[in-house]
């Protein structure tokens, strides 16, 4: 049974790239375009890892991390946040909210996989 990863990003490009990379490494990938939709997916599906962008409409990534950590099925599921190099404070706020780690955008496919491997090996 392949590990299941939920990628949350309002940018289709980013979702496509993350998805493609992870699928290529044998993961099963679900997608959501904002925090609210992500919670909807998580309510019905058990995933092994959540990768989320920070800046999103409706519900941002930091709030999503807090909500996931607050309890429920995924309270101890690893969560990676996507940040840009300039987003050190956002990295910190994501971490404070309970994120497991982060991936710096833009990323090369092997970098993404190595970070994923660190928190959720295939």
């Amino acid at each position: 049974m392949p590990r299941k990863i939920l990628t949350v990003d309002d940018s289709r490009t980013m979702r496509d790239m993350v998805s493609y990379t992870l699928k290529g490494a044998g993961f099963e990938v679900l997608e959501a375009e904002d925090g609210v939709k992500a919670l909807g997916v998580l309510a019905n599906t058990r995933v092994d890892l959540i990768i989320t962008d920070i800046n999103m409409p409706n519900m941002d990534g930091v709030t999503l991390v807090k909500r996931v950590r607050a309890g429920g099925n995924h309270a101890s599921t690893p969560i990676l946040i996507l940040t840009t190099e300039s987003g050190d404070d956002r990295k910190a706020s994501g971490k404070a909210a309970g994120a497991t780690g982060w991936i710096v955008k833009p990323f090369a496919p092997d970098k993404l996989l190595s970070v994923v491997n660190k928190v959720c090996p295939a």
Partner: peptide, 25 residues
């Protein structure tokens, strides 16, 4: 360390089939 932790990775999602329905598609 945490027992609940290790279990979480082994738990077979009971409702895996609904993934397509509830995904963002």
């Amino acid at each position: 360390n945490s027992p609940s932790e290790s279990k979480s990775y082994e738990t077979k999602p009971a409702d895996a089939k609904t993934a397509g329905k509830t995904g963002s598609i």
